[in-house]
Amino acid sequence: MFIYSIHRLLLIIPTLIGVTLLTFVVSNILPMDPARLQVGPRASEETLQRVREELGLNDSLPIQYGRYLYRLCKGDLGTSIFTGRDITSDLGIYFPATVELALFAFVIAVLFGVGLGTLAAIKSGQLLDHLSRITALLGVAVPVFWLGIMLQIVFFSNLRVLPASGRIGQLIAAPKHVTGLYVLDTVVTGNWLALKSSLLHLVLPSITLSFGTLALISRAVRASVLEVLEMEYVNTARAKGLAERIVIARHVLRNALLPIMTMSGLQLALLMGGAILTETVFTWPGVGRYIVQGCFHADFPAIMGSVVVIGAVILLINFAVDLSYMIFDPRIKYD
């Protein structure tokens, strides 16, 4: 187990190098000149060349890439070409926003997805099953931006019970930066007014973001639970006189959830990758928006920094999912 974990962790390094190489190559084959975009259209050739030199863009691509890797090893993601800001510090702000939103959306998707899927399986062919199928269909078919705007119209414009955009109320100061997750930071610093505000601001974007994942999970859970319900050990449990609630919770769900875990892990990884549309509709300052902004201004270091961080997190999530199999299914052993 220990050796397996070390082996898997070490494999993350070449994968990440591959990610950086791919991003670097793609960024550099695009017909964009970051130096020109930085100095503006009225800059002289002399200024342009000086800035190119300062940014190291006159060096050959292998040298530029080598220099990037060297800095990366020191934990330095570089400086944004367009904004002149430190990328590590930028991502320290944008990435936690994405993590917070993704985690809330994930919890909603899992809780409601598993619940809905299980109920649909138990009530297979009945009204609840059909409703669950329609929900799943909507979850996949409804565009995120449409759902987001509809929720804003209902809960912000009409009912005035939830905020429409941002991470915190406009008259409330953001909590002191500890982790960058507002909910956690407000609890740590005891800032209850900000906690309430940040929780309220999370409701609509996390529901919007969770809807697609919820739909997928609910369908997968339904199929898996239906399969397990046919198993002999479920009949045995029932024959022993166990209450149906206990049969479902202890014997059905526990066995049915294993195949769901891989899918859920991947979904969490996707959510962490930045939910650009949700972030745009709700003006959520996440990493997806940061990348879009980077693409808009040909800000290669900002794009590469973001991709490396997201890549690392996705690899770690996959690793965690693999390890968690052992907890849920003791038969699985990694040697």
């Binding site: 705007i149 804003q152 429409a164 955009s165 509709v281 003006t283």
Partner: peptide, 20 residues
């Protein structure tokens, strides 16, 4: 003066009409 970034046109309009 609070300068808010609000990305979506529909949201901008809603926030203006709501007085936020």
């Amino acid at each position: 003066v609070i300068l808010r970034e609000i990305k979506e046109a529909a949201t901008l309009k809603m926030e203006l009409l709501a007085g936020t």
